[in-house]
Amino acid sequence: MLKIRAKNNIFVLVAVVGLLIFLHFIKVLSPLENIAARAINPLAGQFYSVSTSLRVALSERTDKGELLAALNDLQAEINQIKAENARLKAIKEENEKLRQYLKFSTKNEFDFVLANIISRGTLANPVNRGQSLIIDKGTADGLISGLAVVNNEGTIVGKIAEAKENVAEIYLSTGSNCKLAAAIQRSQGEPEDANKTVGIAEGELGLTIRMNFIPQAEEIKVGDIAVTSGLEKSVPAGLIIGEVIEVDKTSNEVWQRATIEPLANLDELTIVSVFRPREN
């Protein structure tokens, strides 16, 4: 009798599991899922901050704490200056184009949404750990797949991969799933009318970014800055991707490749901004 009752209980629970899955796919469970997500988001952000602080603290030795702090400050300042420089260059180019086309009118196509990071890697993508993040904003905040995500210094850190109503998954720029239309900005002293080198930047091994399909004729140097080219509709132009650290140029190849080191520290992110197309 006890065995039959136990078996009946299992069948009931199996039916409940099946029903939950079915109700999810016909969107009946959406209100309950949204309530669950809204309830989890605030606490999840706090837990993530604590965990990130713990991870950062463990990775830095205490006897080098002050030195590292100073180094981080300087690095942040350098990154801000580079971002500012990239923005000024983009503004300068736009200015010159406007002089040529007198009736051209500028428009700000994007606004941005601040979001807390609430999870990393495991839940979002169990196999490619560390190459994706989850934030606490979703389609309810106007987020869609393909939008650019930047850190507080204005450096691009990834793109929205998928958005649910209250959460969204971001592929980090160093992940193999993230591809960006990129351009190499010319260093100072080079002719201003030279064309910008354009290619596709995609993440590699969760550590660096590779820019592929660069024509052989283009001259790229270590130290050049890679930025978004603006060829993607949902990604603004001029967002810094990183700095060229290696150029792979073989004479008998059609294309050359560049290795780019991201300027953003992707391990310490807790808050990001998502560029969202402005509604007309």
Binding site: L43, Y48, V50, R55, L58, S59, S119, R120, I134
Partner: peptide, 21 residues
């Protein structure tokens, strides 16, 4: 269940040295 789920999603997933697993 709520606390454990949040801990799993947000705290454990970001720990270093393989602890995220």
């Amino acid at each position: 269940i709520y606390i454990l789920a949040v801990a799993q999603i947000s705290f454990i997933a970001t720990l270093p040295f393989g602890m995220s697993n």
